[in-house]
């Protein structure tokens, strides 16, 4: 487990602690740790000399700056209309059935978190989903299971 303070410190060394660097720093921490813990937010607030509530306010505004614990692989299924019409429900069912979790939950081994997201720009190739930063399109229930299998087998 990586030291939380050190991720913030590394990010601040990279970007600086001026107000306009708040988003880059938060994004950097999320890229390393998948989410922003209470300690991280408090640490960022201290380094930026801002109130913790304000940092939380900024983080909570952005869907991709999670303030709840997330697994190693965060799956975001597009819920917007074109993906929905091209079969998003079946994709979601396959994911829930395979991972044995509902939307918003994280698997007990902390490997997967299942979420919905607004449009991710793959309307022409729906249904689509993201696993961390990787996009998967033209999904079918079978293809989803295959994708999951790939992640499960990663060490």
């Amino acid at each position: 487990m990586m030291n939380l303070d050190s991720t913030v410190t590394v990010a601040v060394k990279k970007f600086g602690a001026e107000r306009e660097q708040l988003l880059p720093v938060l994004q950097y921490v999320v890229s390393k740790e998948k989410w922003l813990s209470e300690d991280t937010l408090a640490e960022v607030a201290r380094v930026f000399d801002m109130s913790a509530a304000e940092v939380y306010g900024v983080a909570s505004f952005y869907s991709f700056l999670d303030t709840e614990a997330r697994g190693e692989y965060v799956i975001r299924v597009c819920r917007t209309i074109s993906c929905d019409m091209s079969g998003k429900e079946a994709i979601m069912e396959a994911l829930q059935k395979t991972l044995r979790i509902s939307v918003g939950e994280t698997s007990s081994d902390r490997k997967f978190t299942l979420l919905e997201t607004n449009c991710i720009g793959w309307c022409a190739e729906g249904p689509a989903m993201l696993v961390n930063d990787e996009a998967y399109t033209n999904l079918t229930p079978e293809k989803v299971v295959e994708v999951l299998q790939g992640y499960m087998n990663r060490t």
Partner: peptide, 17 residues
């Protein structure tokens, strides 16, 4: 101590976390 959090129709005035 208070800030506006979340967005759209989920906007609330909240404390830290």
């Amino acid at each position: 101590a208070l800030w506006n959090t979340h967005k759209g129709n989920k906007t609330r005035i909240e404390t830290f976390l």
